[in-house]
């Protein structure tokens, strides 16, 4: 029979600190792109809106057909207020280095998690079912 592992008891303070650590990690990692404005946003940023407002736009100059213009107007928009929305486009130019780094991060993460999990799982199985394998 495999040796039984008896974990240490965790004090209340330790439990509290562990809860906070995870939450801090969440906030730092997930709010970072928001504050660093590293990504595209569905809503146009204020500076784009201000820049767009400088030029006098018309529905035609925005490439809107009469039917499209009619729907914009029903929604309460004028060419000036619609301009930053119409001109807020995604840039799908792929940066090969960024793509390779992203792939490496995702693949590396899964390889790491599966390898360590396998090691831990063998320990669990040994303790639950004994040393004999199949």
């Amino acid at each position: 029979m495999a040796q039984h592992y008896e974990p240490p008891k965790q004090a209340g303070v330790g439990q509290f600190i562990d809860s906070i650590v995870l939450m801090v990690l969440v906030f730092i990692c997930l709010l970072a792109p928001v504050y660093l404005k590293a990504d595209h946003s569905a809503a146009p940023p204020p500076e784009v809106q201000a820049e767009a407002a400088k030029a006098a736009a018309t529905w035609q100059s925005l490439g809107q057909t009469p039917a499209q213009a009619q729907q914009w107007e029903k929604l309460g928009y004028t060419p000036e207020t619609a301009q930053p929305i119409v001109e807020n486009r995604f840039d799908y130019t792929v940066d090969p280095t960024a793509l390779i780094v992203t792939i490496a991060v995702i693949v590396g993460y899964f390889v790491f998690v599966f390898r360590i999990s396998d090691r831990e799982y063998r320990e669990v199985v040994r303790e639950r079912f004994g040393n004999g394998g199949n």
Binding site: A2, H4, Y5, E6, P7, P8, Q10, D18, V21, L22, L25, V26, C29, L30, A32, P33, L36, A38, D39, A98, V101, T102, V105, I106, Y109, F112, V113, I116, E120, E123, V124, E127, R128
Partner: peptide
């Protein structure tokens, strides 16, 4: 892309925290 990397960074750091700290409190079998 930046959001994707940030989310991955979170899970990598959380995994490291689990392996090097938290797992010692877990009963195996």
């Amino acid at each position: 892309g930046a959001t994707l990397v940030a989310v991955m960074a979170f899970y990598i750091l959380a995994s490291a925290w689990f392996v090097f700290h938290r797992y010692k409190f877990v009963r195996r079998g």
